[in-house]
Structures are given as C-alpha cells and as structure tokens.
Nucleic acid binder design. Structure first.
Lengths: 331, 331
DNA sequence: ATTTCGTTTGCTACCGGGTGCAAACAGGTG
DNA sequence: CACCTGTTTGCACCCGGTAGCAAACGAAAT
C-alpha cells in the first residue's frame, strides 16, 4: 500500500509552493484561477486529498462527536442512531460510537474521548449513573457534554429529553378515562434517579385521581426477558383478585416481554385481564401481534435540537420536548 | 474552557525535558523510576493526558475504524454493532459510525474516511452496490476494507459471512422434510447480486429435490412494511389453490412483516396455511407471538474474525462461517 | 516613468506529539 | 584513575497541515 500524497508533493508536481496547494483546497482562499487549475490537475494525478488529521491538529477541531451507548437491548436505539448520524453528517460531523457496557467504564471512556479531542460527547445511555460522571473535573479541558433522551442531573450538562411529566400525565389520564383503577408500574432500574422520577410522576397523577395504591414491579434490566421475569414473579405471587388491571412499563421492550409472558404463560387476555402500556413506540409495537399502547418520543426534534447545540446554532441548555400518546389495543 | 496541558508544560513543571514526559507515557520506554514518578505527579497536577490526535499524526495510525451502515431498518444491526464496538474497543480500536443512507454516497463516505486516516473500513450494509466501490482506486492509499455479513465481490476486499450455501441447504432440507412442496422466496432487493445468490441456492436445492417451480416475491426494501406489502400483493393476485405452502424471506424483518399481514389481513394460519422462514434470528423471532423459524448467523465468531483481521492477527481473506438453523413453530 | 492599490504567493512559526541518534551519566573492573 | 558498559536524557528533525504577515506582482492612476 503506497503512502498518501502530501501537499508538498502536489506542489512540486504543479510547480508551486505547498501553501498554494492548500489554498486550492480551501474554499474562499485567495488564489489565481490558473494556479488553482494546475494544482487540481496535479492533485488528481497524484490522488491527493487533504489529511484531516493534520488539519484537526492545527485547527483544534476534529468534527468528531463521541456517542456513548450502554443499552443495546433496546432496538429503539437504532433509529436514534440513524437519525443522529444523519444529522451530524449533515453538519459535517461524524459520530464515534463508544460502547460503555463492558470494558470501558464511563470515566475511562470519557477520558479516552477527551484524548481523541472530540468536539462533543453525547451520553445516549439508559443505565449509566450520573454520579460517576459528576466526579470528573468538568469544564476544564473536557469536551462539552450533552445527554440525549434521559435526564442529565449533572451540573452544567444539558439534556434533551421527551417531557416525562406531560407524557405520564397523558398516559394516566388515558388510563383513568378507560376505567382502569389498579395501576402497576414496571421499572428496569429501581435505583436509577431518572426511573424514580418517572415513577414519581406516575404515582403523583394517580393520587390526584384518588388512586393511592400502585404496584411496583422491578425488572433487573431493560430487556424483554427481564420484563417477562418481573411480570411472572408478580403474577405468581399475587392472587388474581389483587392484581393490577393495567401495567405501565418503563419502555417498550419491557412491555413486549411482559405481554408475551402474560398471554402465553398465564393465558391472560390483554387488555381485558391486564392492560399494558409501553414507552418509545418501537416499530413492532404497532404490529397486530402486539398492538401496544405507548408513548412516542419526538426523535427527529430531539436530535435536531441536540445537534443544533453541538453545532453552536442553539444555546446549550436543557430542552424538554412534548411527545405523542399512541393509543392501540393493549388498553 | 481552559486549554489542555501539553507535554512541554508538564516537562517544565517536573523540571525535565518534554521527551522525558513522553517516555513516562510510553509503555516500555527507557526512563528512570525517579523521573517517571516526578513526571506522573506533575501530569496529574496539570490534568495532562497525551493528545491522541498528535500521536496519530506522528505514528500514522489513528486506531479508528470506519463502519459504514446503510440499513437501519433491520434491528439485527444493533447487536452486531454492540459486539463489534466491544471487540474493537478490546483491541484499542474505536468505531466511527457512518450512515451511508442519505447525504453520503459510498464513494464520498470512503473518501471522507480516507481523509480521516482511519485504519480500516468495515462495510456493514445490506443494499449498497459493490459496483460503485470497485470503481475506486483501491490499494493505493485507501485504508484496508472488509465486508461484514454480506458477500464482497470486490477484488481484494475480503468478506466475513455466514455460509449461505450451507444455510439454505439446511433450510430447504428442513422444509422438504416437513412436507412442504410449493416454496416461495421473498427478496428485499431483487437486483442485488448477494440476494440473487441466496435465491439461486434456494432454487438449486429445491430442484435437487425435484421441485422446479419457485414463486418469487419482491419487496421494495428490507423493512417489515415492504415485506407485508409484497406478501399482500402476492396473496391478492394468487388463487388460494396456487399459493405457496412455505415462504422463505431473506431476513427476519421481511418475515415478521409478512407474518403480520398473512395472519391479520388474510386471516390465514401459520404454519398450517402458509409456513414462514426468516433469516438472522432477531430477538423477537423467538417471542410466542411469532415463533419464527429462522437461521442464526454466528455473530460472535464473525466479528471475532473480522476484528482479528483488522488487528493484523489474522490473514485478511474471505471467511465463511457456519450458522445454526433455529426451528420454531412457523414451519 | 512613477506611484498606488489590490491580488497572489512564499515564508516563518506553530499545532502536540514521535523517532533515532548522540551525549551524559551512572556503576563496576582492572 | 582510566576504561568499559549499560542506562538515562536531550536534541534535531519529522508528521501534514494552518495562520498571518510580508514580499512580489500586475494593472490602473498620476
């Protein structure tokens, strides 16, 4: 594999200085038509293109954004990644995908991203603990951070989220209107502050409607299997008369897992015996096999906003966007 | 935001030269215990860590691998991305995720990745045409390329794939054994050479069993909706007596879309009226709501191999790995 | 012919490290 | 005390660009 051509080599071939070559590749630079033509010809012959690494070093901007992901069990991540990469690329930015599930812990990963001089970091995880991150010396040399689709809770780190309060109000209103009175809430991470907040809203709105007793089901993580397991252990331990009549799951994956278990293992009907609500509106929720009532996050808008903040067009601040309740047959 | 500390600054603080600082951060470099301690102390105080950008420029290795993805409709991409990032990171490499669906065409994206000096490029797409890529001057300055989970067909570009011939043989054997005799094949990209090859194998094996007539259903792309549409138009145009008794879909997403349509729109039973087979073994295929017979790709092994080749441990060459037939209730 | 002004081009210095060589500095021998 | 050997350290130069200044150039104005 041959070495790549450099500006100097092109310069020699075109009979100019290397700075003239650079100018030919810098939009809006002051250069004579004639020289530009000569340079571009020589460049084409040598298959030259500027080295972005060297440029980044000199300009102190890599146009790379690190995206930290920890929850690959949620297929909803994929459309988010699609839209995110698309929008970033439209801004001339590129996403460095970092898996913070296993070897890398958050701090290590952040350090690493920092060393790579990324222009920004997007925290796009479900279960990471904000506490680990707040330990870091933020605002020093660290790249600007943003949290996507989850509360931030880190001082000075803005988040772009779907309005959880509004979402849960709409959901509870809907459920109450349909006549449900014995609600349950399934969380995927009992100790996580974001999850606690959602549960809090859920509980709150039910109390405002005079319903005080809310069953809580804890799944071990955000996966279909964990959702199934949680609902299994609940149904096994709870007499039919004392059971919830509607189960709100923290995300669709938990909900779909729960639905499978409710129907095939316990032979119960949805929504007649137990209604189910999810969160995210993952593609398969609409399938007739599930037809899950859920809440759609405003993905396009959220990403538009976060990328706008990274690109510097928007003021970096926490933004809360309204989503949409999608009512289907599971309630 | 303060500027990051440089090796020179740390050197001044520690009372040594900048090269000694560099040595302190280079494993195995020749440096006295005493100096190393001093340097590390000063570095900690100044919050210094080496600039990987500058290092990459000097060493001509970025430890970044570009991953080109074009098909975000297939949720199966997500576990692949998870395993891929995990393995790459375990090798000290990092994945740059590039969406080649929209703004970027393949050639443009490759050029861009090239300019960023990535160490390798992984083509992890479904629908990209190899023809566009073979136009490029490969082997010049271009980074080494690898194709994941799809045939390569580009001269000198190795692929790591699941053995399609074996897979289709096992599938056809299984279907024949179950007594199916009127097979159909649904493709998501009728013109794509990889797809043609699979179809060819399918046809071939059936012919070896004396079945010559194979219905072909063409979906517009690899999505559940396209799968539903293809099966709808087929069923509407085909008299019940002439219909296939088993439908093999090129991937699970097409299959799941088809199943929904077959059951809810046409009221047919699976597998009694029409059996369905998918490909990939996406998580939800196992759910009781679908219970789809499908073929699992050896994801871990495939990624192990491709990362091994990138890391230079394995000889770069096309590798074909056997997958596993997963029989469920849809056949 | 001289001055003037705008365009074009070359140059120095720099971004933050890495490489290989040579000098400086041990410590142990004869 | 000179000599040898192995370790440690400093240095010049390089990676491939960018920024901003100053010189060179050419055409119009005096």
């Amino acid at each position: 594999m041959r070495k790549r051509a450099t500006a100097k080599e092109v310069a020699d071939a075109a009979g100019v200085s290397k700075w003239t070559v650079i100018r030919a590749f810098t939009p809006g630079a002051s250069i004579a038509e004639e020289s530009k033509r000569k340079v571009l010809e020589a460049a084409a012959a040598l298959n030259y293109s500027p080295n972005l690494l060297a440029r980044s070093l000199a300009t102190n901007a890599t146009h790379q954004v690190a995206v930290f992901v920890d929850d690959f069990a949620n297929p909803q991540k994929l459309p988010f990644l699609e839209t995110l990469t698309e929008r970033l690329q439209a801004e001339g930015l590129v996403a460095v995908l970092i898996n913070i599930n296993t070897h890398f812990d958050h701090v290590h990963a952040l350090l690493h991203a920092d060393q790579r001089q990324v222009d920004a970091v997007i925290l796009f995880g479900t279960a990471f603990r904000s506490e680990t991150l707040s330990d870091l010396q933020l605002g020093r040399g660290t790249p600007p951070m943003f949290v996507l689709a989850r509360d931030s809770q880190i001082e000075g780190v803005p988040a772009v989220v779907c309005d959880a309060e509004l979402a849960l109000r709409e959901i509870v209103d809907h459920l109450h209107e349909r006549g449900y009175r014995r609600p349950g809430f399934m969380t995927g991470a009992p100790a996580l502050s974001t999850a606690l907040r959602r549960r809090h809203h859920f509980t709150d709105f039910w109390q405002q409607k005079g319903v005080d007793e809310i069953a809580v089901l804890s799944a071990e993580k955000y996966s279909a299997e964990a959702g199934a397991e949680a609902v299994r252990s609940y149904l096994e331990q709870t007499a039919p008369t004392g059971r919830v009549d509607v189960l709100m799951c923290e995300n669709d994956i938990l909900a779909l897992g729960a639905m499978d278990e409710i129907r095939s293992r316990f032979g119960l009907r949805i929504p007649e015996d137990i209604a189910v609500v999810g969160f995210d509106n993952y593609e398969f929720c609409g399938s007739p096999a599930y037809s899950l009532t859920t809440y759609e996050q405003p993905r396009q808008e959220m990403i538009q906003v976060i990328v706008g903040m990274i690109a510097g067009r928007l003021e970096p601040e926490t933004v809360t966007l309204p989503g949409t309740l999608v009512v289907r047959n599971s309630t």
